[in-house]
Amino acid sequence: MTNQRIDVLDVLRGVAIMGTLGTNIWIFTDPGGPAGVLDALAQPGAVETFLRFLTNGKFLALLTLLFGVGLELQYRSARRRGAPWPGWYLWRAALLFAEGLIHYFLIFEFDVLMGYAVTSMIVACLIGRSDRVVRAWIIGVGVVFAVVIGLLTAALSAGRDTAAGPASGEDTLFSAGSYAEQVAARAELFVLYRLEAVFIVPLGIVLFLLGSRLMRAGVFERSERGAALRRKIMIVGLGAGVPLNLLTSYAGEDWFLVDRYLLPPLVALGLLGLVATLAHRVSGAPGPVRRGLTAVGRTALSCYVFQNLVGAALCYGWGLGLAARLDGLRPWWVPVAWAGVCLLFMTLASLWLRRFDRGPLELLWQWAYQAPQRSRRGPERAPLR
């Protein structure tokens, strides 16, 4: 890979990480915390619905596609070195699962790293198969996933009249509860909060494999072939996906699953093509925005975890408690909070990379990944004289 293509991937990762915060920020700024998400499914208002539409599911799907690209790069690296595959990659996936588990309990209920770890273990066994086999998996899992989403959506619509009304009383765990109480709640409601993995894993299989194959097809190349492929996915994703996704965003809570998991991957493809195209067209020294996005992309794991920690510290009762204090300014203050956190991490990531080549969690993660390999090789012996 050329340096230019690596830069494009870093920019895309930065966009995806900042975009996932654009979804999560609505959870942090809700006085009810994650519990308020379910109540928010009932149309929160035209302005807030549109603001949620801009990020909901799209950047999660973009991040998932980029995980597939990363898996493809790991596969290529192992093949170049003649290393067995999946081999030590499964240890990487196990570390990612552990990282996600810690992130879930200590910081954020809707962690995606655990789901990505499980998905990567499955896809690692498929990525080296023939294009015919991979295509069959993409189509097969994708069709089953779409059918299940359709059936669940129909069930939600049919059961609307018999569904129980919203629970009475206000949940103050996140607006007034202590940090320890929130950790205890995550442990108690582990199964409930991890239900999203039921959707993330099959969707991840499709998008991981699709990201791998897009990489092989040359979507990131600065060439006519790459440009043509980017134009195609922009037409599909932005031309068809955006209008349909906007429609489902205003269609009501019954369409939540379609709005969150089915249409956003189409939009994510368009975003991938658009951002890559714009990144290739920029010439000369990168500006501050691109430098910031690139820095976030190079420290993606650290930024993902720590931006959620900052969001919790700003909004929850054990921190500054802004969710309850500024609830009267909702939804207007929410995008301002998102922009402020993004600016903070673009700055911090840029400063960190002046001294280190990886983010803090990436450095720790790399050490944990290499430690058992060094132990297995044993101590190096001094050369004989």
Results as ranks from 00 to 15, higher is better:
A61S: 15
N3G: 13
V191P: 01
G22Y: 00
S283C: 03
R325Y: 02
L65N: 01
R135T: 09
Q4S: 15
L9I: 12
V141M: 07
F59I: 00
S350H: 12
A337V: 15
F356V: 05
I102F: 14
G270F: 00
L189N: 14
E181F: 05
L326R: 07
G32Y: 02
M346R: 04
W333C: 00
L363E: 06
W137L: 09
D254F: 00
G328S: 11
L272S: 05
V118G: 14
R281C: 07
M114S: 11
R80K: 14
I149E: 05
A184C: 08
E380F: 05
A197D: 15
G115K: 04
T347H: 10
A295C: 11
L209E: 07
R374K: 11
W338R: 00
A240G: 04
V47T: 15
L209V: 08
W318E: 00
G36R: 06
P335Q: 08
S223K: 12
P372K: 08
L363Y: 06
D7C: 03
I205H: 02
T119A: 09
L73R: 14
E72V: 01
F174Y: 15
E99R: 00
E72H: 12
L329F: 14
I149Q: 04
G22W: 03
Y75F: 15
I122Q: 07
V8I: 15
R290I: 01
V8F: 02
L95C: 09
D259P: 01
L271E: 02
G14T: 07
F256K: 02
F108C: 06
P265T: 06
L106E: 06
L238G: 10
G140E: 13
I102S: 08
A197C: 10
L214H: 00
S283K: 15
L60I: 12
V334S: 06
L320S: 09
A339T: 10
L101E: 12
G36M: 11
R186W: 10
Q43E: 13
P86H: 08
A155Y: 07
M121D: 04
G211M: 01
R231A: 13
P288G: 06
G311H: 10
W26M: 02
L278R: 10
A180L: 13
Y316E: 00
A382L: 14
L263Y: 08
L173K: 10
V296K: 01
S350V: 00
I139C: 10
A217I: 06
S168M: 08
A136H: 11
G359D: 05
L54M: 06
P360K: 05
G165P: 05
R330D: 11
A197Q: 13
Q4T: 13
R291F: 03
R160P: 03
D259A: 10
A16K: 04
V310H: 06
A94H: 03
W91A: 03
G32S: 13
D357W: 07
L263P: 04
G321F: 08
P286I: 02
R213G: 10
S223A: 12
T119C: 15
A167C: 00
I235N: 03
V242T: 14
R129V: 05
L90Q: 09
L38K: 03
G340P: 11
P44T: 09
L293F: 02
Q43W: 04
W367L: 13
R385C: 05
V134I: 15
V11F: 01
I102G: 11
G68E: 02
L71M: 13
I25C: 09
F256P: 01
D111G: 09
G14W: 01
M18Q: 06
